[in-house]
Design a protein around this nucleic acid. Sequence first.
DNA 1: AATTAGCCCAACCGCAGACGT
DNA 2: TACGTCTGCGGTTGGGCTAAT
Length: 361
Amino acid sequence: MGRAPCCDKTKVKRGPWSPEEDSTLIRFLETHGTAGNWIALPQKAGLKRCGKSCRLRWLNYLRPNIKHGNFTKDEDEIICTLYTQMGSRWSIIASNLPGRTDNDVKNYWNTKLKKKLLAGKVIGHTTTNNYITSNNFLEKSCNRKNPHDLLDSSISTTPSSTYDHHHHNHLLFPSQPQIIFSSPPPFPILTDHMGYGSSTVVDSTHEISLMSSDPTTLHFSHHGHVSEFSTNLKNSSSSIFTSSQDGGSSSVSVSADSSSLAMENNNNINKSLSGLAVEDEGGILMDFSFGIGGPIYNEFTNSTSSGIWFQDQKASHDIIHQEAALSYCCYPNLGDHQSSSYADIKPPPQGLINQSVINQY
DNA sequence: AATTAGCCCAACCGCAGACGT
DNA sequence: TACGTCTGCGGTTGGGCTAAT
């Protein structure tokens, strides 16, 4: 048996709100507030509406400082970035856009932004963390003043051929977004641009690789520098949670003896997840995706494959068996904590990375 | 001018978690 | 602890508008 309906639908008005209803609701809320009970509100206010309908009308349309229409380029990028990192968590995404409602953002994404994105006209980028636990995550992310900050705030959509010229890479998608660095990054980073878009690896020598995460083909230009990453998993047991591209979440646990990693993925699409996590004195570098390591069940080809393309170039023959490469990265220094906030994340000291050897999951 | 197709977005629906008793 | 109620959320729907034919 399902739950009881919140109101008798035959006795309440439905459909578009009239200006009179709007003003009645506004007047009532300005005088009385919700009194903590939306269900009882319409009766008190003299509205023939369901409480949920009143709440929605207020939150999405009538409440002060709501912005409608005309999303700015900045807003586009914020939405894309956060959608990449956490999927359709519209309320959280909207909380980073003053004046925007989750409904607005959702509609905008579904009707316009997704298409823009597919056309390569706008991009999002992930920074080096995935801790979307706070509503002001983005603000923190964008305002980092740490000298180890990696990304110049400028993100370009100029054709990648220019990029190729500067960085001697084989670029795969002419319309791929670019991340422009103001200075060589102090350590390798991995980013993922969009769900099934491409990933970029930048290493300490400022080499940049692009990896396609096209579900049907996978190409990439360069991957060797990842082997310079760090290594010893010294932590006692720790867990790290992050989001995955389709809105599910993933967790990574380091075993007590630091000898192994366990990865778990609860997203709706991908049946397995594997990846790489390394640690040095500065923190843990994690990169995990359902395209790294193996075995990987490929829903698109209905097959299982394995291969570790992060190991070194020797493994390159396995690459064609991999599917979407979704890379996430963060530098938390978790210690024994079971959870972390953004404040815990800090980049490892410069120089340490290069002394280490790869530890491959 | 009439019709059709597609788009946009406000509103609705139902689920899940929080909260109170 | 169990249960019922309320709220918040994400997915979906459908009416109105506009562009295309």
